[in-house]
Design a protein around this nucleic acid. Sequence first.
DNA 1: ACGTTCATAATTGGATGCATCATCGTCGCC
DNA 2: GGCGACGATGATGCATCCAATTATGAACGT
Lengths: 241, 241
Amino acid sequence: MATFPSANFSQGPPGESISDRIVAVLQRRILAGEIPIGAWLRHGALAEEFGISRTPVREALRILNAQGIVTIDLHRGARVNGHSGKDIREIGAVRAELEGYAAELATERINDAQLKRMQEAWQGFGELIQQFDGTEEDQQRQAQQWAESNHAFHSVIVEASGNHQLELTIAELRRRLPHNLSYAAYAGNARLLRRNLEQHEGIAAAIIGHNARLARKLMTAHLRASNEATARWVENRGSRV
Amino acid sequence: MATFPSANFSQGPPGESISDRIVAVLQRRILAGEIPIGAWLRHGALAEEFGISRTPVREALRILNAQGIVTIDLHRGARVNGHSGKDIREIGAVRAELEGYAAELATERINDAQLKRMQEAWQGFGELIQQFDGTEEDQQRQAQQWAESNHAFHSVIVEASGNHQLELTIAELRRRLPHNLSYAAYAGNARLLRRNLEQHEGIAAAIIGHNARLARKLMTAHLRASNEATARWVENRGSRV
DNA sequence: ACGTTCATAATTGGATGCATCATCGTCGCC
DNA sequence: GGCGACGATGATGCATCCAATTATGAACGT
């Protein structure tokens, strides 16, 4: 592990402060699972790693705290939040409602470019699933690709809703849960993946067919099912904190 | 305007940092409209007012920025965000969906104490509206009371949904819009207020009657209408920024 | 052996200092 | 008179410093 500055963090794109960049880096690491749940985030260590002082690190941790990603105990420090099955179900329920609503809006408002991206996303996913086997590493890599494809599919629909505040709110919800949770739950489970693909197909068909009500219904059901699988996986694996 | 420390901010309830308290104070002031849209929030001035250093003020402003309440321009400072009619419609649409969902859940889960609070809220509102007239100041005061009563009604339903993450998300949305907007739109408009009361009655009746689907539908419609009135008011009064 | 006490180290919270950037008025020049 | 360079001024962003709090661990007594 590098203790010297891992990159030049004291200069970057203009209009962006150092703490903004620290926030982005830590968000990514936590969401990716590089920093495990319950880990302490020390001012000193992070400052040293990035070659900066503790001040912007402190600000970054405050922001992550406001976003619900870490918890700050006064005079003790910041640690990465874990999530119980209950938390995951609650966040997922909210997300299911909002993305369902987004699908409804998107059905009316989606444009050709977005339609194309949507279809590419779930078709890429379909090709991926065809060749679903191989070694453990293959499965890990495929799960990663699945996560990206999945994200692309959902993102384009949310974007196509045309409601920017809705987009922000959903992004906020996504940020509360580490991604590796959901795709870890799916990795190596061909049945779940196939069901997922079928649901995406149904949603895409509803949107293309201009059936807004159906699109909403399917999207909500899809996310509820997907989320329930994740919540169960967390509860069984006992990796909650 | 006091330039000396307005209160003893260097000590307070344990478990809470100074910046947390600054965040709370500024949130309240901005939501109440004490600090107008577009106003600059200066480190030095705030630090002096609260009798603290600039460091916790900076952290507070960064948190408000993350919450979408202020915008920080690098090397220029933080200013209070304004909202266009479009923003208000978008936020309101999201809120209408989520509170509709909350009403649906609440219908199944609300307990007796919460039911009582809910009824008190809209009944208090009803009494208020009976005597709706008087001088301009009276109307202002009544609008203020209406805002509180309104907030109590919605809060108890959201709380009764039993989904804490949903509660957090709705609180987040509420924080994005200054309250004075919505009740300024209603102040002095007896017709709007009466319609509001009727809608609350309908929602309460649906919840009491255990009709979850209806409760949801009415709540969503209620918030959409209410929000549209606010958006129109903002657009006509031209107090957007 | 085990719990308690006290001193020490580690870490955070907040204050202060300093370099950088944006703004604004003035001066000089065309 | 108008326009651009330039320096003063004020504010921010970050680094550094100090105080307050918590964790750690050894010494001690039971």
